[in-house]
Amino acid sequence: MSDSTPAIEIKDLVYTYGRAEAVHGLNLTVQPGRCYGLFGRNGAGKTTTMKCVLNLLRPRGGTVRLFGLDPSTHEVEVKRRLAYVPDHVAFYPWMTVRETLDYLASFRDRWNRDTERGLLDRFRLDPGQRTAALSKGQRTQVALVAAICPEPDLLLLDEPTSGLDPIVRREFIETVIGAYQEGGPGKRTILVSTHLISEFEGLIDQFTIMDRGRDILALDADQARNRYQKIRARFTGAPPDTVFPGALHVRRNGRELELIANGGGPEIVERLRGLSPESLTSEALTLEEVFVATLK
């Protein structure tokens, strides 16, 4: 595989259930070594997309390639290079944590025992406990251990932290950064679907926002924070009725004017300054705010 082969390449993906959640012509490319965010509201088609990537669902149209391979015809080759942490984790309830990890390890070529020991310690998981007795947070932790120990090239995370308490969420993300990314700098690729965007803000370096089964915005995270700005101006009287081309949203509230700029922020700030406001501030939008502004 050459270095330029994307870890994931999705073209014109279509999947329909005849229900609300479906995918209608999604395009998405993830280069190796990136941490890629897939953002969308509930029902936007994130999980369906994940399942098509995992070959758990057969696309009705378009193509999915992982490491340049078709996951439906190269199932084993593809699966040995990836790991998956779903939203709802289920294990055989009669197995202990130890037995579960050994069972999962038996499907893998590689299993890093040192990493496993370190993570069980860190999460304070009791290897002798039956998985039926684990909390939701602990089940997710076991699933994360099972996903990291085989040292896969690609880690797929589908709403991994929803429904977990803040401490477990924080540890989860630190583990992905520490234990997973540590292994092969520049090689370990992550695709994470989530609507809890702010938690993953620092980790994500590129993202796609999807809505109703389509990709509506794909950007580099730093670029997005540079391009989207929230500009606030307060005037001594009512804000002027000036029209600002390039402003996504304009809100007037008493003597205040708030604009969301999508590019062209500096020009808008310049124009506002010309109107002699009492105060004028501008700040970047966080990824979560970009998401909200895009879907509003």
């Binding site: 993300i173 630190e174 950064i177 990314q181 520049g186 370096d205």
Partner: peptide, 16 residues
């Protein structure tokens, strides 16, 4: 790199 990335919860590639 690793402890700083973990502490700030940012991608380790960013720190690198």
């Amino acid at each position: 790199i690793r402890p700083l990335a973990e502490e700030l919860r940012v991608n380790r590639n960013t720190i690198a």
